[in-house]
Amino acid sequence: MTATAPSRHWRDPGGWQFVLAVVLTIVTLFVLVYPAIYVLVGSFRPGGGLLSTAETFTIRNYVRIFQAGFGRFILNSVVICVAATVVSTVLSVMAAYVFSRFEFRAKRTLFTGILFGQVFPWIVLINPLFVAFAAMHLINSYVGMILTYTAFTIPFSVYMLVGYLVTVPKSLDEAAIIDGASRWQVIWLIICPVMLPGFVATATYAFLLSWTEYLFALAFLTQTDLKTLPLGLYQFFGDDYVDWGAVMAASVVTTLPVFLLFLPIQGWISPGRIAGAVK
């Protein structure tokens, strides 16, 4: 048994080091996962589980949030985020294709500029955009939010897509063009099918970024019937009273699509690449 003769290799601990590693891992797992489970369970209990009642399972929290108009927030979020994702992905595919296929003078400058969009302090844009939006009647409007989220997700999407597209050999395009295909046909009929998983992963992540965005929604949407999900979630926090049951049910409804969409794509979104896209 190696446990009696501890290895000197630090990555291969034996004896008490082994036990320590396992204990630490279990503690880490607990801290990582338990809070999320706690809320999931709480969403099915009266008052989120803080009330001491005999009742242990109820769906009343969920019923209550939908009676309070949560469905409307979901609808608003779906409309805004789906539209923004579609526009953003189409524009990003167009730009990324050019970046991956052609040499031109401003290429490096433009691409660096787009990369900078990933670290841009968005909070600084709030005032000037609010002034401009107010003048153009884009406050409290779907169009305003769709445009904002399109611009918000393009830098990340272009960067991701260029990364995928450079892996598709240029000879594929050239062969098709010799056969008489137009560039548009090349993108639509050749690149899209090959890169579909990458496109879907990018679009999904863009959707998730918009789905959970809070600041712009807070500043640009003041009318209750236009508010998005993140704003709706926080309306259950009263000034001196928090309806924890409703808050938790709303949290689960907000997060569920995120988990369902994120898990299948996370293999495509390596943490290294995404490091630039987290706001």
């Binding site: 880490t28 809320v39 959970t212 949290s251 995120v258 898990l263």
Partner: peptide
């Protein structure tokens, strides 16, 4: 345990910041 832990890391990572705050406000009540 490592693969279980990797999966566990996905939970907080995939949790949106707006929800992470809700979770902890509740835990810290």
């Amino acid at each position: 345990l490592a693969s279980v832990a990797r999966f566990a890391l996905l939970v907080p990572w995939a949790t949106p910041p707006i929800v992470a705050v809700v979770i902890w406000r509740f835990l810290l009540e």
